[in-house]
Amino acid sequence: MFEARLANGNIFKMIVESIRELVVDVNIDCSTEELSIQCMDSAHVALVSMSLSQSAFDHFRCDRSLSLGLNLPNVSKIFKMMGRDDTMVLKAEDSADKLMLMFENDKSGTIADFELKLMAIEAEQLGVPDTAYKCSISMPSSEFQRIVRDLQVMGDTCKISCTKEGLKFSATGQIGTGNILMRQNVASEKEEDHVTIDMEEPVELNFALRYLNFFTKATPLSPTVILKMSPGLPIVIEYPIEQLGHVKYYLAPKMEE
């Protein structure tokens, strides 16, 4: 039996929204410790890794590890019916052929319940090594969203370079070149406005802007985004969910042929 109650159901809705443009069908893996997702887009260019600790939930019971195979467009349709302040309850039997979702609102006294058929999804799992990255940058997630959105008018590819000067995003296309440089900035009283750059050696990598824009769908989950880069490796773009979990994206770089 799996049963989980999340007072702030909106967190789960935002997680679904942060993934649904990249993948259609996903397995949500339930264990005694957490709910987690690992999935790739159909082109195997990007990977999403989500974790939400059992401590995020008001009630969490998982007798046996199980995978809930979900079709995200359908899940998203159901979450459209969830109110902003609703509590979410998930329930599944060990056989896991259907998922019960409940949205409860104490103020209005409403309880909405849905039964969703689950699917058996064959997903390719990747072993992602725990790497020490050469550059780690923390910045406001809204700034990152604005930069990758704005640069799309210049071209399809974004060069991200981390040097002593700062973190530079560049795009080149038919109309010319655009560069946006972020310098380290810890002047603000609010820590979430800080830009911190931890660089062991300079790194420069190229990425598809289309994917970077997909990842910014996670912006509502976190005021801060963490970018990690090493030469010749996929970038990691992490949105921490308070102290309770994260949505991490890995994106393969574009390389010289």
Binding site: V45, L47, P129, N206, P234, A252, E256
Partner: peptide, 14 residues
Amino acid sequence: PLKQGTLFSFFNKH
């Protein structure tokens, strides 16, 4: 020209 890599060149399949 730049070529888009896939994650299989970097990570192992489980």
